[in-house]
Design a protein around this nucleic acid. Structure first.
Length: 443
DNA sequence: TCTGGGGTCCTAGGACCC
DNA sequence: TCTGGGGTCCTAGGACCC
């Protein structure tokens, strides 16, 4: 038996823990540049705010409906997430952390009333972190996801599903008949693995509810759609096709990308941004003890600005050998950006992707063959690793960017506000991860 | 004026090989 | 006129997730 536990409106709930004035109010959390709504409280959903909806489209609700918007504070959310995950892990032998606000738990072999266990887990998470959660139990991961959807919806919109399934929903206790009624009341698009495109195509074929879908012939689905959809249907019928993954492998790619706060036209701005993104990606690469075989750099104009000439560049630079050295990775990114840059465009977004990732130190044998080819970076591998380690630990201790790669600083002084950097005008303090931003209690 | 930032998996088709 | 066949590997793109 699997459980899927997730926080309700995670980002908004995190903000509410430290700002009680947000309780009961319509609240949205905004993406970088305060561009779009990436989380909504139930009250904001009721006002009709859609996921990923541009802020300028709903901004009028600030005055007319008391909508409150805050900038995303990912440092806070990440820390709250790890606290929540640790509590959930106490309740089952195995846990897969699926996203910042969701984990699957494997209850195989656990005895007792699962609904009672689910309620106890909710209560612990709420008491220890302040975050409200929903819990769904099912024979497969897809069913657990659906049970979770039922738990949340029964709580939020009474009438859709039986009221006693609110907050904690265990499909294991339902009869076939009851389960069919739930399937019939759920649209295919609400299923894990069916998005907009597939949902629309299924709709065209007359398959609208989950009940319609589970009655389809799997071989036909496989032929007309994909094995992914076939697996989804098998899982809905109770045949487990997806295992719990409690030992996540290292990432296959590392991406750092950002929309600019203001359009960038000069090469210098692109180079600055790309340098910083590459340095940030390299940090993450070293965290997983990996090395990158190639660096991809892209930058693009905005398709939303229809009067602008459009241009997208994407260049991949292979490295002489896999590395996690920020200097080499930043160098490669700058080289790629310089080569692909074209003058006369309003660039709106850029990114750096590290690809061909592999465990660090796999290529020890061939090292010195190529040493001279890495221009400007003269260091033996061991010195190189030590230097990067020192840089990472200084940055951890004294704050991000205490030590940086030179080329990221060449163009503009680090103290001045760079034109491309993102705007976040409404960010809350990082209450749980910065000493100087901790909440204060007045006696 | 203003439109997120990460990831994963699968598939089709081309390059290449014998 | 007729112009092999089967396999692997890689990449780009599409779909999905939160």
């Amino acid at each position: 038996m699997f459980a899927l536990v997730d926080a309700n409106n995670m980002y908004v709930s995190c903000e509410r823990v430290f700002a009680p004035r947000l309780a009961g109010r319509p609240v949205v959390v905004l993406s970088s540049n305060d561009g779009a709504c990436i989380a909504r409280s139930n009250e904001a959903k009721d006002l009709g705010v859609k996921m990923a909806q541009p802020w300028f489209q709903v901004r009028h609700l600030e005055r007319s409906a008391g909508l409150i918007a805050v900038s995303a504070n990912f440092e806070l959310y990440g820390d709250m997430s790890s606290r929540m995950m640790a509590i959930e892990a106490r309740f089952a032998p195995r846990q897969e952390i699926y996203s910042i606000d969701e984990s699957f738990l494997d209850f195989a072999g656990v005895r007792g009333d699962l609904v009672a266990i689910g309620r106890a887990m909710r209560a612990d998470v709420l008491r220890e972190t302040g975050l409200p959660t929903s819990v769904g139990f099912g024979l497969t991961k897809t069913l657990a996801k659906l049970a979770n959807h039922v738990a949340k919806t029964a709580d939020r919109k009474p009438g859709t599903y039986p009221a006693d399934l609110a907050q904690v929903c265990n499909f294991g206790t339902l009869s076939n008949n009851e389960l069919e009624q739930i399937f019939a009341a759920t649209e295919v698009g609400d299923i894990w693995g069916v998005g907009q495109r597939i949902g629309a195509r299924l709709g065209d074929a007359g398959v609208r509810t989950v009940l319609d879908l589970v009655r389809c012939d799997t071989a036909t689905l496989r032929k007309q759609f994909s094995v992914v959809l076939e697996k989804t249907v098998l899982e809905l019928r109770g045949t487990s096709c997806m295992d719990l993954d409690d030992a996540p492998a290292a990432r296959h790619q590392i991406l750092v990308s950002r929309s600019f706060g203001k359009a960038v036209t000069e090469l210098s701005g692109i180079v600055e941004a790309v340098s910083e993104f590459a340095a940030r990606a390299a940090e993450r690469l070293r965290q997983q003890d990996g090395a990158a075989g190639a660096v991809n750099v892209f930058f693009t104009t905005s398709a939303f600005r229809q009067n602008d000439q459009q241009h997208s560049a994407s260049v991949t630079v292979p490295l002489i050998r896999p590395t996690a050295d920020s200097r080499l990775l930043v160098g490669a990114a700058v080289q790629a950006a310089t080569g692909a840059y074209r003058t006369g465009f309003n660039y709106a977004k850029a990114g750096v992707m590290l690809v061909d990732l592999q465990p660090a130190g796999q290529h020890q044998g061939e090292l010195d063959l190529f040493a001279d080819a890495e221009e400007g970076v003269k260091a033996r591998p061991r010195d190189r690793a030590a230097l990067m380690q020192a840089m990472d630990s200084l940055n951890r201790r004294f704050g991000r960017d205490s030590v940086r790669i030179g080329s990221a600083l060449q163009v503009s002084n680090s103290n001045e506000v760079r034109s491309w950097s993102t705007r976040q005008e409404r960010r809350s303090p990082r209450y749980t991860t910065r000493w100087d931003e901790m909440p204060r209690v007045r006696a």
